[in-house]
């Protein structure tokens, strides 16, 4: 039985590497990534699961890292925006001007990447369902829609 009864070292598999992190059982994955592993791409926007700025992939699925304890992630594969290497969705965000201040961008991109991995041919409806988990305050979402649609396989392409 895995257990952590006080502040202690855990091993996290992040972006293909095994990293050790000193956490309390009550620390969130977001905290461990940012404060212990220096992976600040995931952002705190509400720490309540409402905004999606902290989204990372866990075993391939988008997860709001503010709503996951770091200990829960032990034994799972975590991917953060720092683990993407020139993914098409990153270029699409650049080309479509799909961000302004950029603070929500990491979270949006990771959610998009999850969708691209799991449902590369997602319909507009499914795409919206997924991306409604994130808030962008600068853009109108029209640009983000264009970016993700340029990467998804649609019937027209």
């Amino acid at each position: 039985m895995f257990q952590l009864t006080g502040e202690g070292l855990i091993e996290l598999n992040v972006n293909g590497e095994t990293r050790k992190a000193l956490v309390r059982p009550a620390d969130t994955l977001l905290f461990a990534l940012r404060e212990r592993l220096g992976l600040t791409g995931a952002k705190p926007g509400c720490e309540n699961g409402d905004c999606g700025a902290c989204t990372v992939l866990v075993d391939g699925w988008p997860i709001k890292s503010c709503l996951m304890l770091a200990v829960e992630a032990v034994g799972r594969e975590i991917q953060t925006v720092e683990g993407l290497n020139g993914a098409p969705i990153q270029k699409a965000f650049v080309d479509k001007f799909a961000f302004q201040c950029g603070y929500c961008t990491s979270g949006f991109i990771m959610n998009c990447q999850g969708l691209i991995n799991i449902h590369p041919d997602a319909s507009d409806e499914v795409m919206q369902e997924w991306l409604q988990s994130n808030i962008c305050r600068c853009t109108s979402y029209q640009e983000i829609t264009e970016a993700i649609k340029s990467v998804l396989i649609t019937e027209n392409t």
């Binding site: 791409g41 995931a42 925006v81 650049v94 080309d95 603070y103």
Partner: peptide, 23 residues
Amino acid sequence: KDIIRKEAWDKVTGRALYNADYA
């Protein structure tokens, strides 16, 4: 011209740093 913003790639890679990102 539609010049792509200078910090665009920093922002899509999570490398752009905001105030609370600095140690």
